[in-house]
Design a binder for these strands. Structure first.
Length: 270
DNA sequence: AAAGACACCTGTCCGC
DNA sequence: TGCGGACAGGTGTCTT
């Protein structure tokens, strides 16, 4: 389901409902997610959720004594439901709060994860080596230019690497590269600093637009309240292989990069 | 050290 | 209608 805009949409949706609330019950129906749901997650019961934060595609529920780290993988969904709503297949974890609401984790592919850490979540193994957030001051052309000088990977592969920049997945990598006019297979060491500056601008523009539209719904993304994401209607290249480029009319090409569907316009992107 | 392959899962869609 | 195969928004770990 989620790239950064979808995760951000979920965080904004659940934050007002969960912040300041006490967890009264935890129900785990399936503990084989990407990693086993740890026994220690039970320490969440009785804790008050002080804040909801997002880092890359991770969702953090912060309490005084520890933090829940949630990742939605490819197909995960978080929703707020009344605690009495009967769970369906693939509803793996319920976090029930004092007012009767329930944060329900649904994930049919089980690539997602839910973990508990007692210490600073930003020091957690999964989070400590992540690249800068796309909207942070550290995501600069100087940074991209300097760290790409010896690299031999395609720019699209690199953009999707969370250790380079956080939160960009297949959809928004395709979209940002099209907007920036850069061919997805371009080797990173061949890209100039001004082009990286353009790319940063385009990444931010695409992500901002997607967040404003509540994310992208392709198959199963719904916001925490069950709404569709409307950015789907604004995708310029993703899922449009074989159709005309919306900028110049040239037929959009498709290829595989790292086994991921890649769509580009050979006229607009050089 | 860097890059690429592989693994983890289920659901859906398409062609025969 | 049924079946096999390809494909799907991610990413840590293993191999080269």
């Amino acid at each position: 389901m989620p790239e950064l805009p979808e995760v951000e949409t979920v965080c904004r949706g659940i934050s007002p409902i969960l912040t300041g609330k006490k967890v009264v019950t935890l129900k785990i129906r399936q503990n084989k997610l990407r990693w086993l749901v740890p026994e220690s997650l039970n320490e969440l019961v009785g804790q008050t959720i002080n804040a909801i934060q997002r880092r890359a595609k991770y969702i953090l529920l912060i309490t005084d004594n520890g933090t829940v780290i949630i990742h939605l993988g490819m197909s995960g969904r978080l929703s707020i439901v009344p605690r009495e709503l009967k769970p369906t297949i693939h509803d793996h974890v319920d976090i029930i709060i004092a007012d009767g609401n329930c944060l329900r984790l649904h994930d049919h592919r089980r690539f997602g994860a839910i973990l508990w850490t007692r210490t600073d979540p930003y020091e957690h193994k999964l989070l400590c080596d992540l690249g800068p957030e796309p909207f942070s001051n550290n995501f600069t052309a100087d940074y991209l230019y300097a760290s790409s000088r010896k690299g031999k990977v395609a720019i699209k592969t690199w953009l999707m690497n969370g250790h380079v920049v956080a939160g960009i997945g297949n959809i928004y990598a395709n979209e940002a590269l099209h907007m920036a006019g850069i061919l997805p297979l371009t080797i990173i060491s061949n890209i100039s600093k001004p082009r990286y500056q353009t790319l940063i601008h385009c990444v931010q523009e695409v992500l901002n637009a997607a967040i404003a539209q509540g994310g992208t719904t392709l198959r199963d993304f719904l916001s925490s309240s069950g709404n569709l994401g409307y950015f789907t209607q604004q995708l310029k290249v993703y899922g449009r292989g074989g159709l005309p480029c919306l900028t110049c009319g040239t037929i959009l090409q498709t290829t595989q990069i790292q086994n991921r569907q890649t769509v580009y316009c050979y006229k607009c992107q050089k």
